[in-house]
Design a protein around this nucleic acid. Structure first.
Length: 761
DNA sequence: AGCTTGGGTAAGGGTAATATACGAAC
DNA sequence: TGTTCGTATATTACCCTTACCCAAGC
């Protein structure tokens, strides 16, 4: 296991078997690693594996700063024979630029068990106590709560699912089992003895919740989709025949038990659909008040047995009753007022004031209290959901960042009422907040390997690419001409983090489609022949895209001229060579000396849920050499003895601007700059205009990506290649309403936003 | 016998995405 | 008057928790 010299920037890391990084509810990154050999002996048959905590802290910070990522190390039990090593970055840390102290150097501290409590009283114990205990009763939970334990409830995040899938994958690998369904559905309890406990590692969820989640995920009769009329008919018959034996009904229908149970809940022989009659509404109100012992006019949002209500109402299902009551009737009855734009702004501000790190921490009951235009806490939450969706990548943005972006959005609208007037004048309703959304999307993407790439001769050429996707729409302060969108300081910008992307082979050797997740259609193609070419696929967005290509060293060494071409208009491509970073900052070198294959790069959640697991996992050993500057955690491959260094950073646009200008002024400084050919160079003015805002570019690690902080890449290391004019914008002006139709992604929404704004002028 | 472990079931509150209805503007 | 389009409302597939149960092992 690793040791640390705390009095310097350096870190000595010994070989570790396996490490998984996860994130707890406090936002801490938890690095899970197996026992080392000594530990394994010590801990044999012991109840708790040894725990080690890796803490990332800023050299000059006084305390644990909010902006400082904290990495915790927790020992993760693996099979005894497994000496392999794997680093999986599964947590995301987002650090607002303005919270970052420039020049901070982050150290790694790896502390032994006895020191854990000094870092976090909850920390590791919390993880094990919650996720390793099977508890479902209220008493069990109360007991844990009283002991100070907290755990996550509600919907599983993408990160959690990634951790879970990763754990399962490792469990399977360690036991040479190909298919998890063998364990879940075929093995006896005894045979799968430690399965759930093992895969629950790193998840701050009750074991029971993990169990439920796994069953759902692997049940191929789940997620079957909409029920056909034929299925409904058959379901009715089966219901009569088998009553509430959901397992039997489900088996007969090829659906999961919970699915048929849920579907039956929606069916009532006497159920009406569509608009509620006055009579029905009256009845619903009477029943609700009667069953809750309340008076007409009282606000009732909780403690209602909707099944009982539906029973009494007679013509509606429990879901219909609940929905009608919470979203309309109760509010109407109690003399509620209409929801206005001011309410919307108010909601954002109020949520911001709560200063919660996680949306799950919002107390909607409290928030809704005494707010006459709020129909119910549940309604308010759904309202929040629609507001949230103004941010295209809201799912991939941390909550604080999202709030910040929304605040900016609305402040801008407030400060620029002409924006709304203009929009109104051009036929766009003011209330259509979506059309005024402006985005700056920032992401740190990871190189996603896959089987197809692995089998390709070009697979070895793995180029970690950081993409900073800056999408900003126009504002009255901005100038729009036929070729460019120039952003002035008044321009509203919202930052978002794009999710991970994958490299998809196109069939042309060395050419990959750079594919983002389903909701993120980033129109870029990465061509990796001996050169690296980034090509925008049409239709591109009228946004700025800043691409940081972090070239593996072997690539740099073997190819002097890495060419980055971007045919997307107004795309700023910045390549960041590993050595640039190395020379300019203190950093860790992560050396890989055994294979890592596609299996080390988990499939996206969708694919995971479809049970697509790699058959083999290779665990390269890793050495971390001195001066691990920051939280650098990467995926590695030695397929070509590649030493990869991925880094994550937080930069301001000013920094980028500086760099860009520097680049313009002294091209000779481009020690590792890659020449761009046939591309239009941006004017300095453009660059300044684009970056004059004191806005923050937040670049955060994607799950399985890398961690970064502000000082990882300095201005010297980011080398702009070019900016281009925006053909898409031209396209917009030539034939509007076409853009984005084939993308169906937030990018296309962005395009539309710009289009709307352009039309205003 | 009683407790613990490792599940298992049903009920029902809830979420998120989509479909549909509605109404205002053109 | 008809069409279009944005919004509100309704629907529904799926998610998650709670409460309770059970059997085997200790």
């Amino acid at each position: 296991m690793s040791t640390v010299e705390e009095d310097s920037d350096t870190v000595t890391v010994e070989t570790v078997n396996s490490v998984t990084l996860t994130q707890d509810t406090e936002g801490n990154l938890i690095l899970h690693c197996p026992q080392n050999e000594a530990d394994e002996i010590d801990s044999e048959d012991s109840i708790e594996p040894p725990h080690k905590r890796l803490c990332l802290s800023s050299e000059d910070d006084q305390s644990i700063d909010d902006s400082t990522p904290c990495i915790s190390v927790v020992a993760l039990p693996l099979s005894e024979n497994d000496q392999s090593f794997e680093v999986t970055m599964t947590a995301t840390t987002e650090v607002a630029d303005d919270e970052v102290t420039e020049g901070t150097v982050t150290q790694i501290q790896i502390l032994q068990n006895e020191q854990l409590d000094e870092i976090s009283p909850l920390g590791n114990e919390e993880v094990s106590a919650v996720s390793q205990a099977w508890f479902t009763t209220k008493e069990d939970k109360d007991s844990l709560t009283n002991k100070g334990h907290k755990w996550k409830q509600g919907m599983w995040s993408k990160e959690e699912i990634d951790i879970l899938m990763n754990n399962i994958e490792r469990y399977l690998k360690a036991r040479g089992i190909k298919d998890a369904t063998e364990i879940i559905f075929e093995m006896s309890k005894d045979e799968r003895k430690d399965f759930y406990r093992t895969i629950a590692w790193g998840l701050n969820r009750p074991l029971f919740a993990v169990y439920r989640r796994v069953l759902r995920m692997y049940d191929d009769r789940n997620h079957v989709g909409k029920y056909t009329p034929e299925e409904i008919e058959k379901l009715k018959e089966l219901r009569i025949k088998h009553g509430n034996d959901w397992a039997t009904i489900g088996a007969a229908l090829g659906r999961s038990a919970s699915s048929v149970k849920d579907r039956c809940r929606l069916m009532k022989d006497t159920c009406n659909t569509g608009k509620w009659t006055e009579e029905e509404e009256k009845r619903l109100a009477e029943v609700v008040h009667e069953l809750t012992s309340t008076e007409p006019g009282d606000i009732v949002t909780q403690g209602v047995s909707w099944a009982a209500v539906a029973e009494r109402v007679g013509t509606r299902s429990e879901k219909q009753c609940r929905s009608k009551w919470l979203n309309y009737l109760n509010w109407k009855q109690s003399g509620g007022t209409e929801w206005t734009k001011e309410d919307e702004i108010n909601l954002i501000l109020r949520i911001a004031e709560l200063d919660v790190a996680d949306e799950n921490d919002i107390n909607w009951d409290l928030l809704a209290e005494g707010w006459s235009s709020v129909r119910s806490p549940q309604w308010l939450r759904s309202k929040w959901w629609t507001i949230k969706r103004q941010i295209a990548n809201h799912k991939d943005v941390s909550f604080p960042v999202l709030i910040k972006g929304l605040k900016q959005l609305h402040e801008n609208q407030k400060n620029n009422p002409t924006l709304l007037e203009n929009k109104s004048g051009s036929g766009v309703p003011n209330s259509n907040t979506n059309s005024s959304v402006q985005h700056v999307q920032i992401r740190v993407a990871r190189l996603e390997d896959n089987t197809a790439i692995s089998s390709s001769p070009m697979a070895a050429l793995q180029i970690p690419v950081q993409i900073t996707h800056v999408s900003s729409t126009d504002s009255p302060a901005a100038t729009v001409d036929s070729e460019t969108i120039t952003l002035n300081s008044g321009t509203l910008q919202t930052f978002e983090i794009l999710p991970s992307f994958h490299l998809q082979p196109t069939g042309t050797p060395g050419t990959y489609l750079l594919q983002t997740s389903s909701s993120q259609g980033l129109p870029l193609t990465l061509t990796a022949s001996p050169t690296v070419t980034l090509t925008a696929a049409a239709p591109a967005s009228p946004e700025q895209i800043i691409v940081h290509a972090l070239s593996p060293e072997h690539l740099l060494n073997t190819s002097d001229n890495v060419t980055v071409q971007c045919h997307t208009p107004r795309v700023i491509i910045q390549t960041v060579a590993t050595e640039d970073i190395t020379s300019s900052i203190s950093q860790a070198e992560l050396t890989v000396d055994s294979d890592i294959q596609s299996s080390d790069f988990p499939e996206p959640p969708d694919a995971l849920e479809a049970d697509t697991f790699p058959d083999e996992i290779h665990h390269p050993k890793m050495t971390v050499e001195p001066s691990f500057n920051d939280a650098h955690v990467s995926k590695f491959s030695d397929q070509n003895s590649t030493e990869l260094m991925n880094s994550v950073m937080v930069r301001t646009e000013e920094e980028i601007s500086d760099t860009d200008l520097k680049q313009e002024e002294s091209p000779s400084d481009l020690a590792s700059a890659y020449v761009t050919e046939g591309l239009e160079s941006p004017t300095i003015e453009e660059q300044v205009d684009q970056t004059i805002d004191d806005e923050t570019i937040l670049i955060v690690p994607s799950p399985h990506g890398f961690i970064q902080t502000s000082d990882v890449i300095d201005t010297e290391s980011v080398l702009p290649l070019t900016t281009l004019t925006d053909p898409i914008l031209q396209h917009h002006q030539e034939e509007s309403n076409i853009i984005g139709s084939s993308l169906g992604s937030p990018v296309s929404e962005d395009s539309k936003d710009v289009e709307d704004l352009v039309n205003c002028h």
